[in-house]
Design a protein around this nucleic acid. Sequence first.
DNA 1: AATCATCCCAACCGCCTGTGT
DNA 2: TACACAGGCGGTTGGGATGAT
Length: 345
Amino acid sequence: MGRAPCCDKANVKKGPWSPEEDAKLKSYIEQHGTGGNWIALPQKIGLKRCGKSCRLRWLNYLRPNIKHGGFSEEEDNIICSLYISIGSRWSIIAAQLPGRTDNDIKNYWNTRLKKKLLGKQRKEQQARRSSGLKQEMKRGNGNPVVPADNNNQNPYWPELPILAPTPYSNHEPHFNDHSSIRKLLIKLGGKFSDDDQVNHNAMNPQFPADLSYTQQLYDNQSINVSSSAPMEETLEDTDAQFAQTQYDIDGAAGLQMLQGQSSFPAGLEQMVSSNPPRLDGLEFLLGDDMVNNRIRTAYGTESMIDCGEMTSLIFPPGASSCEGIIQQRLLQECAFDEPRYPGSL
DNA sequence: AATCATCCCAACCGCCTGTGT
DNA sequence: TACACAGGCGGTTGGGATGAT
């Protein structure tokens, strides 16, 4: 038995909304509100629409103060940095951009921002490649350098760093006690309540939107990287507890450091404190291995990557900003879709 | 002018989560 | 505790708009 439909599909109109439908919905909600029940709403006002469709229409189009198009550079930066931090959680990203809807941002990312970053990077790569070839020709053999290994999965951008996690070293984790975590949070401008819960509200909201801050932070701190897989599978209870604390801190710090001038709304803070930042969907940024596998120490326990390793994973050589990372990841993601390098045939 | 390709965005779909019973 | 239901979300798609040939 399948799931019950949310409405009678046969008696429901689909497709673009007419101005009359818009007017009906808008005037009703402005006068009466949604009544807390979207499913019942279309019947009340005589619309042959699914409740979900009404909700979407209101949220994405009819709601007051909605902005469409014309994303600013600053908004681009915020989207990029939040995408790095939390992935494709468009509703959360949208909450940071007043007047923007999750749908708008999602579309903007998929259709423009991604390509914009990709285009920039390709130009740079092309410039570097052609200058490299010229130099090679000058040196005398007259033959351009062609990757010898046709199985190379990334023949186009040989300079791209491998972002998959390197085998973990025997470094001691930097944050092996709560005081270390406190130090990090204090450094970040955080405060603690008595029960060691991070008080996100008290954290300094003045971090610059400047993306380089992200790198600064990674350069200075250890970061715990793990997937969203259940902790209990691999950890002792105490370890799991501690790891959860790290999750909370990383999530809060990660988001906090990426925000602009205003504080995150309470809902976001709650999300951060109760959910670790998921890496799902960030494969193209962090590498499949990083997302799909736990990073473990030689002892088989989940561990942290120290600042040097993390920096090299998150900010590989040549990636000077989050934009750089995204560009590089996008390029790797697209490498298989591209026609093969002519010389490698 | 006609055709084809690509871009863009509104809307849909189905899954997940939270809440009430 | 289990279930049903509505809301919310992210991924995907359909089709109009625009540009290229």
